[in-house]
Design a protein around this nucleic acid. Structure first.
Lengths: 124, 124
DNA sequence: CCTAGTAACTTTCACATTGAAAGTGACTTT
DNA sequence: AAAGTCACTTTCAATGTGAAAGTTACTAGG
Protein backbone atom coordinates (compact mmCIF):
# COMPACT_ATOMS: atom_id res chain seq x y z
CA UNK A 1 0.00 0.00 0.00
CA UNK A 2 1.22 3.46 -0.87
CA UNK A 3 0.78 6.53 1.28
CA UNK A 4 -1.92 7.99 -0.93
CA UNK A 5 -4.00 4.86 -0.34
CA UNK A 6 -4.44 5.39 3.38
CA UNK A 7 -8.02 4.91 4.49
CA UNK A 8 -8.18 8.30 6.15
CA UNK A 9 -6.14 11.15 7.58
CA UNK A 10 -6.39 9.65 11.07
CA UNK A 11 -3.00 8.71 12.48
CA UNK A 12 -4.43 5.67 14.17
CA UNK A 13 -6.07 4.40 10.98
CA UNK A 14 -2.82 5.00 9.10
CA UNK A 15 -0.72 3.17 11.65
CA UNK A 16 -3.14 0.26 11.49
CA UNK A 17 -2.83 0.31 7.70
CA UNK A 18 0.88 -0.40 8.20
CA UNK A 19 1.14 -2.62 11.27
CA UNK A 20 -2.48 -3.43 12.12
CA UNK A 21 -2.59 -7.17 11.85
CA UNK A 22 -1.92 -10.31 13.81
CA UNK A 23 1.76 -10.76 12.92
CA UNK A 24 3.61 -7.61 11.94
CA UNK A 25 4.29 -6.26 15.42
CA UNK A 26 5.50 -9.67 16.57
CA UNK A 27 8.18 -9.54 13.90
CA UNK A 28 9.12 -6.07 15.09
CA UNK A 29 9.17 -7.34 18.67
CA UNK A 30 11.58 -10.15 17.78
CA UNK A 31 13.90 -7.80 15.92
CA UNK A 32 13.67 -5.13 18.61
CA UNK A 33 14.13 -7.17 21.77
CA UNK A 34 14.89 -10.78 21.07
CA UNK A 35 17.96 -10.46 18.91
CA UNK A 36 16.46 -12.37 16.03
CA UNK A 37 18.15 -11.56 12.77
CA UNK A 38 17.50 -14.32 10.26
CA UNK A 39 14.39 -15.62 8.54
CA UNK A 40 14.86 -18.92 10.34
CA UNK A 41 15.17 -17.31 13.76
CA UNK A 42 12.05 -15.22 13.18
CA UNK A 43 10.15 -18.27 12.06
CA UNK A 44 11.10 -20.17 15.20
CA UNK A 45 9.30 -17.74 17.49
CA UNK A 46 6.77 -18.99 20.00
CA UNK A 47 3.82 -18.01 17.84
CA UNK A 48 4.94 -20.01 14.79
CA UNK A 49 4.29 -17.55 12.02
CA UNK A 50 3.79 -19.33 8.69
CA UNK A 51 6.76 -18.82 6.37
CA UNK A 52 4.76 -17.25 3.55
CA UNK A 53 3.23 -14.72 5.94
CA UNK A 54 6.63 -13.96 7.43
CA UNK A 55 8.14 -13.38 3.99
CA UNK A 56 5.29 -11.08 3.03
CA UNK A 57 5.47 -9.08 6.26
CA UNK A 58 9.23 -8.65 5.99
CA UNK A 59 8.77 -7.34 2.47
CA UNK A 60 6.10 -4.89 3.61
CA UNK A 61 8.16 -3.66 6.55
CA UNK A 62 11.10 -3.14 4.24
CA UNK A 63 8.92 -1.23 1.76
CA UNK A 64 7.81 1.03 4.57
CA UNK A 65 11.42 1.59 5.54
CA UNK A 66 10.99 0.03 8.96
CA UNK A 67 13.60 -2.67 8.41
CA UNK A 68 16.41 -3.55 6.05
CA UNK A 69 17.62 -6.84 4.66
CA UNK A 70 21.35 -7.28 4.36
CA UNK A 71 23.62 -10.00 3.16
CA UNK A 72 25.79 -11.04 6.06
CA UNK A 73 27.49 -13.97 4.39
CA UNK A 74 28.38 -15.09 0.88
CA UNK A 75 28.61 -18.73 -0.27
CA UNK A 76 25.94 -19.55 0.61
CA UNK A 77 24.22 -16.20 0.66
CA UNK A 78 22.62 -15.51 4.01
CA UNK A 79 20.51 -12.54 4.99
CA UNK A 80 20.09 -10.59 8.20
CA UNK A 81 17.16 -8.34 8.98
CA UNK A 82 17.36 -5.37 11.24
CA UNK A 83 15.23 -2.44 12.16
CA UNK A 84 15.93 1.01 10.81
CA UNK A 85 15.64 4.02 13.11
CA UNK A 86 12.04 4.36 11.97
CA UNK A 87 11.43 0.75 12.90
CA UNK A 88 13.05 1.25 16.28
CA UNK A 89 10.77 4.20 16.88
CA UNK A 90 7.93 1.70 17.32
CA UNK A 91 9.36 0.73 20.70
CA UNK A 92 7.01 2.93 22.79
CA UNK A 93 4.05 1.50 20.89
CA UNK A 94 5.18 -2.04 21.63
CA UNK A 95 5.77 -1.12 25.26
CA UNK A 96 2.24 0.22 25.72
CA UNK A 97 0.74 -2.80 24.03
CA UNK A 98 2.80 -5.10 26.22
CA UNK A 99 1.91 -3.25 29.38
CA UNK A 100 -1.79 -3.39 28.56
CA UNK A 101 -1.67 -7.11 27.76
CA UNK A 102 0.24 -7.84 30.92
CA UNK A 103 -2.30 -6.03 33.06
CA UNK A 104 -5.50 -7.17 31.36
CA UNK A 105 -4.77 -10.47 29.67
CA UNK A 106 -2.31 -12.02 32.07
CA UNK A 107 0.55 -12.23 29.58
CA UNK A 108 4.22 -12.26 30.51
CA UNK A 109 6.22 -9.06 30.60
CA UNK A 110 9.59 -8.63 29.01
CA UNK A 111 11.90 -5.93 30.27
CA UNK A 112 14.03 -4.60 27.40
CA UNK A 113 16.49 -3.01 29.84
CA UNK A 114 17.34 -6.14 31.78
CA UNK A 115 16.56 -8.53 28.95
CA UNK A 116 14.58 -10.61 31.39
CA UNK A 117 10.95 -11.58 31.25
CA UNK A 118 8.50 -12.24 34.04
CA UNK A 119 6.16 -15.21 33.90
CA UNK A 120 2.58 -14.88 32.78
CA UNK A 121 0.06 -14.51 35.54
CA UNK A 122 -2.45 -17.31 35.89
CA UNK A 123 -5.00 -15.63 38.17
CA UNK A 124 -7.11 -12.53 37.32
CA UNK B 1 -11.56 -16.57 21.37
CA UNK B 2 -11.18 -17.64 24.99
CA UNK B 3 -8.21 -16.83 27.18
CA UNK B 4 -6.87 -20.39 27.02
CA UNK B 5 -6.65 -20.09 23.25
CA UNK B 6 -4.04 -17.32 23.23
CA UNK B 7 -1.22 -18.02 20.80
CA UNK B 8 1.42 -17.59 23.45
CA UNK B 9 2.18 -16.16 26.87
CA UNK B 10 3.54 -12.97 25.29
CA UNK B 11 1.55 -9.91 26.28
CA UNK B 12 1.98 -8.39 22.85
CA UNK B 13 0.74 -11.52 21.08
CA UNK B 14 -2.21 -11.66 23.48
CA UNK B 15 -3.13 -8.04 22.97
CA UNK B 16 -2.98 -8.57 19.22
CA UNK B 17 -5.25 -11.60 19.63
CA UNK B 18 -7.85 -9.20 21.05
CA UNK B 19 -7.40 -5.92 19.18
CA UNK B 20 -4.86 -6.78 16.48
CA UNK B 21 -6.75 -6.06 13.30
CA UNK B 22 -7.64 -3.27 10.95
CA UNK B 23 -10.86 -2.10 12.64
CA UNK B 24 -11.14 -2.85 16.33
CA UNK B 25 -9.04 0.03 17.62
CA UNK B 26 -10.88 2.47 15.38
CA UNK B 27 -14.11 1.52 17.10
CA UNK B 28 -12.42 2.05 20.45
CA UNK B 29 -11.11 5.40 19.22
CA UNK B 30 -14.60 6.57 18.26
CA UNK B 31 -16.07 5.54 21.59
CA UNK B 32 -13.13 6.94 23.53
CA UNK B 33 -12.69 10.33 21.90
CA UNK B 34 -15.35 11.08 19.34
CA UNK B 35 -18.46 10.69 21.45
CA UNK B 36 -19.96 8.05 19.18
CA UNK B 37 -22.50 5.93 20.96
CA UNK B 38 -24.77 4.26 18.44
CA UNK B 39 -24.23 1.65 15.75
CA UNK B 40 -25.16 4.23 13.14
CA UNK B 41 -22.74 6.82 14.47
CA UNK B 42 -19.91 4.28 14.54
CA UNK B 43 -20.70 3.21 11.01
CA UNK B 44 -20.57 6.81 9.77
CA UNK B 45 -16.89 7.20 10.69
CA UNK B 46 -14.40 8.39 8.13
CA UNK B 47 -13.09 4.90 7.44
CA UNK B 48 -16.51 3.43 6.54
CA UNK B 49 -16.39 0.17 8.40
CA UNK B 50 -18.73 -2.40 6.82
CA UNK B 51 -21.77 -3.04 9.01
CA UNK B 52 -21.20 -6.78 9.37
CA UNK B 53 -17.62 -6.19 10.50
CA UNK B 54 -18.74 -3.50 12.93
CA UNK B 55 -21.37 -5.79 14.43
CA UNK B 56 -18.85 -8.58 14.85
CA UNK B 57 -16.23 -6.32 16.44
CA UNK B 58 -18.72 -4.82 18.86
CA UNK B 59 -19.71 -8.32 19.91
CA UNK B 60 -16.08 -9.30 20.42
CA UNK B 61 -15.28 -6.18 22.42
CA UNK B 62 -18.33 -6.82 24.60
CA UNK B 63 -17.27 -10.46 25.14
CA UNK B 64 -13.86 -9.23 26.25
CA UNK B 65 -15.52 -6.81 28.65
CA UNK B 66 -14.10 -3.76 26.91
CA UNK B 67 -17.49 -2.24 26.12
CA UNK B 68 -21.12 -2.62 27.06
CA UNK B 69 -24.31 -2.34 25.05
CA UNK B 70 -27.25 -0.66 26.73
CA UNK B 71 -30.80 0.15 25.78
CA UNK B 72 -31.20 3.91 25.92
CA UNK B 73 -34.68 4.08 24.46
CA UNK B 74 -37.75 1.83 24.21
CA UNK B 75 -40.29 1.90 21.37
CA UNK B 76 -38.40 1.56 19.18
CA UNK B 77 -35.54 -0.07 21.06
CA UNK B 78 -32.28 1.77 20.56
CA UNK B 79 -28.88 0.84 21.84
CA UNK B 80 -25.89 2.80 23.06
CA UNK B 81 -22.36 1.45 23.30
CA UNK B 82 -19.82 2.65 25.78
CA UNK B 83 -16.43 1.62 26.99
CA UNK B 84 -15.97 -0.08 30.32
CA UNK B 85 -13.04 0.92 32.55
CA UNK B 86 -11.06 -1.88 30.92
CA UNK B 87 -11.90 -0.45 27.53
CA UNK B 88 -10.90 3.02 28.64
CA UNK B 89 -7.58 1.64 29.82
CA UNK B 90 -6.62 1.28 26.16
CA UNK B 91 -6.19 5.05 25.93
CA UNK B 92 -2.38 5.07 26.37
CA UNK B 93 -2.12 2.42 23.67
CA UNK B 94 -4.19 4.53 21.29
CA UNK B 95 -2.15 7.60 22.19
CA UNK B 96 1.15 5.90 21.32
CA UNK B 97 -0.23 4.56 18.07
CA UNK B 98 -1.56 8.01 17.17
CA UNK B 99 1.70 9.71 18.05
CA UNK B 100 3.69 7.28 15.94
CA UNK B 101 1.37 7.64 12.96
CA UNK B 102 1.44 11.40 13.23
CA UNK B 103 5.21 11.47 13.21
CA UNK B 104 5.93 8.82 10.61
CA UNK B 105 2.89 8.63 8.35
CA UNK B 106 1.78 12.23 8.31
CA UNK B 107 -1.64 11.59 9.81
CA UNK B 108 -3.65 14.16 11.76
CA UNK B 109 -3.39 14.33 15.51
CA UNK B 110 -6.34 14.53 17.85
CA UNK B 111 -5.86 15.96 21.30
CA UNK B 112 -8.22 14.23 23.76
CA UNK B 113 -7.70 17.02 26.31
CA UNK B 114 -8.73 19.89 24.10
CA UNK B 115 -10.97 17.83 21.85
CA UNK B 116 -9.29 19.45 18.87
CA UNK B 117 -7.41 17.83 16.04
CA UNK B 118 -4.57 19.10 13.95
CA UNK B 119 -4.53 18.65 10.19
CA UNK B 120 -2.58 15.89 8.53
CA UNK B 121 0.83 16.81 7.29
CA UNK B 122 1.37 16.58 3.57
CA UNK B 123 5.16 16.78 3.39
CA UNK B 124 7.63 14.30 4.95
C1' DC C 1 -54.59 2.41 6.23
C1' DC C 2 -50.65 2.93 3.43
C1' DT C 3 -46.16 4.51 2.43
C1' DA C 4 -41.82 6.33 3.73
C1' DG C 5 -38.20 6.73 6.95
C1' DT C 6 -34.85 5.32 10.61
C1' DA C 7 -31.99 2.38 13.59
C1' DA C 8 -29.73 -1.80 14.26
C1' DC C 9 -28.44 -5.24 12.60
C1' DT C 10 -28.19 -9.89 9.47
C1' DT C 11 -27.62 -12.30 5.24
C1' DT C 12 -25.60 -13.19 0.88
C1' DC C 13 -21.85 -13.96 -1.99
C1' DA C 14 -17.78 -12.91 -4.74
C1' DC C 15 -13.25 -12.01 -3.76
C1' DA C 16 -9.00 -11.70 -0.88
C1' DT C 17 -6.18 -13.47 2.81
C1' DT C 18 -4.48 -17.03 5.70
C1' DG C 19 -1.89 -20.90 7.00
C1' DA C 20 -0.35 -25.87 6.72
C1' DA C 21 2.46 -28.33 3.97
C1' DA C 22 5.34 -29.38 0.40
C1' DG C 23 8.63 -27.75 -2.96
C1' DT C 24 12.80 -25.08 -4.84
C1' DG C 25 17.59 -23.44 -5.39
C1' DA C 26 21.96 -22.51 -3.73
C1' DC C 27 25.13 -23.91 -1.34
C1' DT C 28 28.06 -26.89 2.67
C1' DT C 29 29.06 -30.94 5.19
C1' DT C 30 29.63 -35.88 5.80
C1' DA D 1 26.84 -38.93 -3.76
C1' DA D 2 23.67 -38.13 -0.12
C1' DA D 3 22.03 -35.41 3.49
C1' DG D 4 21.46 -31.04 5.67
C1' DT D 5 20.68 -25.93 6.07
C1' DC D 6 18.79 -21.54 4.90
C1' DA D 7 15.70 -18.60 2.68
C1' DC D 8 12.29 -18.51 0.74
C1' DT D 9 8.07 -19.78 -2.88
C1' DT D 10 4.17 -22.41 -4.31
C1' DT D 11 -0.09 -24.77 -3.66
C1' DC D 12 -4.63 -25.04 -2.14
C1' DA D 13 -8.37 -25.66 1.18
C1' DA D 14 -10.36 -22.97 4.68
C1' DT D 15 -11.38 -18.72 6.61
C1' DG D 16 -12.21 -13.79 6.60
C1' DT D 17 -13.57 -9.48 4.32
C1' DG D 18 -16.58 -6.16 2.44
C1' DA D 19 -20.26 -4.32 -0.80
C1' DA D 20 -24.87 -4.60 -1.13
C1' DA D 21 -29.28 -6.00 -0.21
C1' DG D 22 -32.50 -7.73 3.18
C1' DT D 23 -34.87 -7.98 7.86
C1' DT D 24 -37.22 -6.44 12.04
C1' DA D 25 -39.30 -3.10 14.74
C1' DC D 26 -40.92 0.75 15.18
C1' DT D 27 -42.60 6.16 14.20
C1' DA D 28 -44.28 9.84 11.30
C1' DG D 29 -46.82 11.75 7.53
C1' DG D 30 -50.52 11.76 3.94
Amino acid sequence: MAKQDFRSACSIARTLDVVGDKWTLLVVRDLMWHGKRTFQALQDSAERVPSNILAERLKRLAEWGLLRREVYQQRPTRYAYHLTDEGKSLEPVLMQIMTWGHKHLGGGRFDPKSGRSFAARTGP
